[in-house]
Design a protein around this nucleic acid. Sequence first.
DNA 1: TAGAATACCTACTGGACGGTATGCGATCTC
DNA 2: GAGATCGCATACCGTCCAGTAGGTATTCTA
Lengths: 207, 207
Amino acid sequence: MARQARALATRQAVLLAAAEVFDERGYAAATMAEILERAGVTKGALYFHFHSKEELALAVIEGQAAWLATWQPTSDSPVQTLIDLGYAFSHALLDDPLVRGSIRLTIEHGSFTQPQIEAYQGWSDVARGLLEQAREAGDLHPGLDVAAAAGVITGAVTGIQLSSQVLAGRQDLLRRMADLWTLLLPGLVQPHALARLSVAERAPRGA
Amino acid sequence: MARQARALATRQAVLLAAAEVFDERGYAAATMAEILERAGVTKGALYFHFHSKEELALAVIEGQAAWLATWQPTSDSPVQTLIDLGYAFSHALLDDPLVRGSIRLTIEHGSFTQPQIEAYQGWSDVARGLLEQAREAGDLHPGLDVAAAAGVITGAVTGIQLSSQVLAGRQDLLRRMADLWTLLLPGLVQPHALARLSVAERAPRGA
DNA sequence: TAGAATACCTACTGGACGGTATGCGATCTC
DNA sequence: GAGATCGCATACCGTCCAGTAGGTATTCTA
């Protein structure tokens, strides 16, 4: 095991550097040279762990699914959990380069469509599951199309995040998330449920 | 004039081909060779009209601002006009390669940040103007933050469009737009105004 | 401690890509 | 109708980039 310790460290360094560069430049504009330089690693070391640029990108995308997989519900109320998830994701986006790079690669369609679709679908499925729980709890408007709402929410979060990044370097991301929920919730949940929800962030940090 | 007619045609052909390739591949992955091939034009012709790849991309982005500039209000109700604008934009996205390419270049941040910010801001400003009219007309919820709502709406439309593209090649774009408004409007306008709005698309075509 | 994987380093390659230099026919000007 | 400009064609260039070949150090195994 000790023999793999160093190897694991360089692998992580490469992955982190790649995520950063992919986040900043996008897939096509990212160069292996910059990733190498930032990771403080030579070409041979990188290509020992990852056989190609594409494989490296896929490994970064995987980080997103991993983040979502480790995430845990935070409230008895499904809708409140959904809101909290949005804030937890925002913090991940602000703090975790792997998530940032992963998101940019997911958004940038073209090269590897399959994992991108899966990433989107993963988010949409989580949202949909929570909404179905909320419907069973009687929180949602009766006629609401749960699948459609899940699609709108994931799309909206994607766009909010993107515009925050382009316009303000993500500095106003949390505020924009609050704005989103303020606008969305009245169309989603019934008044009696609305009163019990906190649109603003509840805890200073998630997980 | 007859001499410039041909020149204008090749310029348009180049611009169109460039928009298509930028839309499909993104800026960095797009190659001049593919643009040339698709435009049916030689390198000399292209570089006569556009001095660099970047200049070509900027010209494509300009098409977006041009589209927005030619757009005209479609209703006495500002909110209805906003909804209609969303659908008109969706149709432009489906039909007009220039708008498609322009949007992708705007979303793909990195190379030329300035025009991208302006493009976003242009959309946000239009939305904000309409919302302010709606507030004066007494249609909106009293405490609503108009600027915040405009930011959310432009961001959400951006994200809806993106997820529709990645997941379904934009085939379900119009349906997703309807879903968005269904969810958003209750948080935006008061019930009496809500009754007068059409969430679904009103006319078969815009403009 | 021999040797066999493992983990990494250095130098190189082939090709693609954006951009340029130069030339040439058509059209306009006077 | 002669030069000048416009609009385009072709061939070429320097650079950069992903990936590889082959060697070397390190660490595990027995």
